[in-house]
Write a protein that binds this DNA or RNA. Structure first.
Lengths: 400, 400
DNA sequence: CAAATTATGTCCGAAGTTGAACATTGTCTG
DNA sequence: CAGACAATGTTCAACTTCGGACATAATTTG
C-alpha cells in the first residue's frame, strides 16, 4: 500500500486543498496555501513520488502554457463509507476524490441488532472489494453514519432511541477485525452536513442541514467545521418545544416539533384526514396501501388536494417555528432541508420559509437562504467518505 | 511608542499564550506553543528586546532553579475600553494584561444621541490619559461594547431597538479623529462572553453567556472563539417564541421570551401583584419608589414573599424553556447568566435550572453547568479590552 | 557540601525556505 | 510560420530556522 502516513504539515495542506477543490494547477495550488513556488513544488514532487497525487491532464490555456491539473491519486487507496438508515443500509467504496467505485443500497431492519447489520455490512464490503480486486489493506479509512446520537471520540452510540441495544456494540471494534484502517462514526445528520459542505467546496462558513424523517435532526457547520457540541449531541432539534400546550412526545415533554411535524405525526394527520372524509384522494391512497407515506401526502398535495395542503402547511409551519428559534440564535447563511419528509414537495418548503421569515429577526433573515438539500443519490455515503478522508489523511497525527 | 507591529507568527503565538495565561516561564511557554527551546528563546529575546514582554520576578522553585515569569510588558502601551449600557457609560484604560489603569462609570442617557454620548466618552478618556500621563499615541487599540446589534466588520449598529438613531453614527470614525489605534465595536453580550472567556483563561470551548435586562441577549463562544453568525446577529435569543399563545411582543410576534420574562415583563408582573394585593411587601416597595425593580423583587423573594417567589419562578421557567431549545441545539458545557435581572437572586437561577434540565435531552445536560456570571466590577470594560487586544495584537495583519 | 533536580542560555550542523534566473510550452499577431 | 508574449514549471545558491547537545545557573536533598 502507498505510504500516506508521515506527511509534513505542508504536504497535508496541499492534500487538503486538492481534496476540497477537486484539483488545481501547481501555481494555483501554491497560491491557495500561500507557499512559494519552490516550497510548493518540493512538496508536490514528494507527493507525486509517493503516488499520493497525480497529474490529471492539461487544462485549456489562458494565454500561455497550459496548466497541468494535480489531483489526489486514485492509486493511494480507497475509503469505505457506510450509511445506516432507519430502514436501509448503504455501503460504498470511494476513491480519495470522492468518486464512487461501487455502491450498494439495501433494505435492512436495524431492530435485528447491530451485530447482524454489521455482518451484512462487512459482507457487502468484502464483495465489493473482491469485485474490484481491492485488498483490505488498501482501505485507508472508514466512515460510518448512524441515525442516533454518537460520542464522536469513542465512536459509540449513546441512548439511541431508534437503535435499541446498539449502545453496547462497538462499530469500531467490529470493523477493526477486518480492517487496519481507522474507523470514524458520527450521526447521519452531521454526515449529511459534511457531505453538503464538501459538495459546496467548503465555501460556506455557517450553515445547517435539517433532516426530517422519523425524527428531526440538524447538522451544524460552524466556522467551516462540523460542530458537535460538548457531548456530541449538538443539533438535537427534534425536541425543541414549539407549543407548550401541544401533544405529549415520547421524550416526556409536550409540544416537541418531532411530535408535531416529523414523519409519523404527518402520516397520522393524513390518515386522520382520510378517515374523516376530508379528502377522497388521501382515502384512496390509504385504502390502496394501508398506510400513508410522506410521498403519498406529497402526491396529494401536488395534485392540489386541499386537506393534504393544509397538513403540509401546518407541518411546515411548526418546522418553521423551530427553525426561527434556531435562526435567531445561530444566524446561519443557509439552511438545507432533507430527509424523507422533504419529499412532500415545494409547498412544504414554502410553508417553512414563510414561517421562518415571519418569526425571525429581519437582520438574521436578510441573507438567509432556505432550500432543499441538493439531492444526489448516495449523499449519505459521500458524507461518510468525506469524514473518513478528513479524519485520517487531513487531520494531524494527534487525531489518529 | 513601542513597535508591536511586524510580529512573526511565532512571536504572536507567544504573546497570545502570555495574554491568555497571564504569565509563564520560558520553559512552560515554549512547551505550551510546542516550540523548541531555541526557537522559543529566539522569539523571547526579540520580544524582550522590543520591550513587548518583560521578566516579572522569579517564582517559587519546584526542586531546582527557580523559573522566571514572563509577562506582557506594561510599557508596550494601553488599551481603551468603552462599555455603553442602556443607562450608563463605562470607560477604562487597561494594561495589556487587563489590569485596570483607570475606570470611570457614569449615568448617561443614550437617547441623547450617539454624538453627545461619545463626546463624553472622549472627554473621559482624555482626562484619564492626562491623569496618568499617557499620550494618545500610546493607545494600542480601542474596544467598544454597545447594547444593540452590530455589523462587526463595519463597526456600525444595525437597527438598534434601544439606540434609535445610532445606526448612522460611526463610532469608529469618531474615535479615529483622536486616536490612530484601530477601533472594534461589538454588542455587549459578545463582549461579556469574551470577558468571561478570558477570566476562565480560555479553558472552555463552547459556552453561552445570557444577559437578561431590558432585553435578552446571548453571547456565544464556539470552538473557543466568539461566534457572531453570518450577519453578526447570532445570539439574538430574546425573540425566541416560548408560547405561541403568549402576549404580543413589540417585534410583532407572540410569546417571545423577552416579552414574558425580561426586566419590563417581570416589573409589570410584580406591579400587578402589588396592585392586586397579593403581596403586602411588594405593595410597600412599590409605594415607596413608584416602580418596582428586579432588585425589589429579589429582596421580596429572598424575604420569602410568596407572590414574589411565584413571579420569579414563572420568569425563570420561561427563560428555561428558551434555554432548553438552545441547549438541545448547541449542547454547551456552561451557561452563565448575567444582566440586571440576574440580581433577583438564587430562586431565579434554580427555576431556570429546573426548567432547562426538565426539557432538554439527558445527553445534552449530562455535563451542563448553569450559573450566574461570576460578577466582578468592570466586567464589561475588561471584555472590551480583551477584544481590543485580540483584534489588534493577536490577529494576523490581515485583520488590521 | 556533593549530588540530584530543575530552569535557563548558547552553539552548530542539519534541514527547510526563498527569490530570482532559467527552461518549457503554449497562444497570438502579422 | 517566425517572433513576441504569457503562463507555468524547474533549479540553485543564499539565507533562515530548527532541534538537540552541551553549558550554566539556582535550589533542594541527603
Amino acid at each position: 500500500m502507498v505510504d500516506w502516513h508521515h506527511l509534513s504539515d505542508g504536504e497535508r495542506a496541499l492534500l487538503e486543498r486538492l481534496f476540497w477543490t477537486g484539483g488545481l494547477s501547481r501555481g494555483d495550488l501554491a497560491a491557495s496555501v500561500d507557499f512559494s513556488k519552490s516550497k510548493a513544488n518540493m512538496a508536490i514532487a514528494s507527493l507525486l513520488g509517493r503516488e499520493l497525487i497525480e497529474e490529471g491532464g492539461v487544462q485549456p490555456s489562458t494565454g500561455g502554457r497550459r496548466p497541468e491539473l494535480l489531483r489526489l491519486s486514485h492509486g493511494m487507496g480507497v475509503l469505505a463509507a457506510i450509511d445506516i438508515g432507519a430502514t436501509s443500509i448503504d455501503v460504498a467504496l470511494l476513491a480519495p476524490d470522492m468518486t464512487l467505485i461501487d455502491h450498494r443500497s439495501e433494505a435492512a431492519d436495524v431492530h435485528a441488532g447491530a451485530p447482524l447489520v454489521f455482518a451484512r455490512v462487512r459482507n457487502l464490503l468484502r464483495q465489493m472489494r473482491e469485485r474490484h480486486d481491492i485488498a483490505a489493506g488498501r482501505v485507508l479509512g472508514i466512515g460510518v453514519g448512524v441515525p442516533g446520537p454518537v460520542a464522536f471520540d469513542s465512536g459509540m452510540l449513546v441512548n439511541p432511541p431508534l437503535l435499541p441495544g446498539w449502545e453496547t456494540f462497538s462499530i469500531r471494534d467490529c470493523l477493526a477485525e477486518e480492517y487496519a484502517a481507522p474507523v470514524f462514526v458520527d450521526n447521519d445528520v452531521n454526515i449529511m452536513a459534511l457531505g453538503t459542505h464538501w459538495r459546496l467546496r467548503g465555501q460556506l462558513r455557517n450553515f445547517l442541514v435539517i433532516k426530517i424523517g422519523t425524527g428531526i435532526g440538524c447538522g451544524i457547520i460552524c466556522h467551516g467545521a462540523v460542530y458537535r457540541g460538548t457531548d456530541g449531541s449538538a443539533g438535537d432539534v427534534g425536541h425543541i418545544c414549539v407549543d407548550p400546550h401541544g401533544p405529549l412526545c415520547h421524550c416526556g415533554n409536550a409540544g416537541c416539533v418531532e411530535a408535531m411535524a416529523a414523519g409519523p405525526a404527518i402520516a397520522r394527520m393524513a390518515e386522520a384526514a382520510a378517515h374523516a372524509g376530508e379528502s377522497a384522494l388521501l382515502k384512496e391512497l390509504l385504502d390502496r396501501n394501508g398506510v400513508l407515506s410522506p410521498m403519498d401526502l406529497g402526491n396529494a398535495s401536488r395534485a392540489g388536494d386541499a386537506a393534504a395542503n393544509a397538513i403540509v402547511q401546518q407541518a411546515g409551519g411548526w418546522i418553521g417555528r423551530m427553525l426561527a428559534a434556531v435562526v435567531n440564535f445561530f444566524n446561519p447563511s443557509h439552511i438545507f432541508i432533507g430527509g424523507g419528509v422533504a419529499k412532500v414537495g415545494p409547498l412544504f418548503l414554502a410553508s417553512i420559509r414563510q414561517s421562518v421569515y415571519q418569526r425571525s429577526l429581519a437582520l438574521s433573515t436578510r441573507h438567509l437562504d432556505i432550500q432543499y438539500v441538493p439531492q444526489v443519490e448516495s449523499a449519505g455515503v459521500i458524507g461518510a467518505g468525506v469524514m473518513a478522508v478528513q479524519e485520517t489523511m487531513l487531520a494531524g497525527p494527534e487525531r489518529r
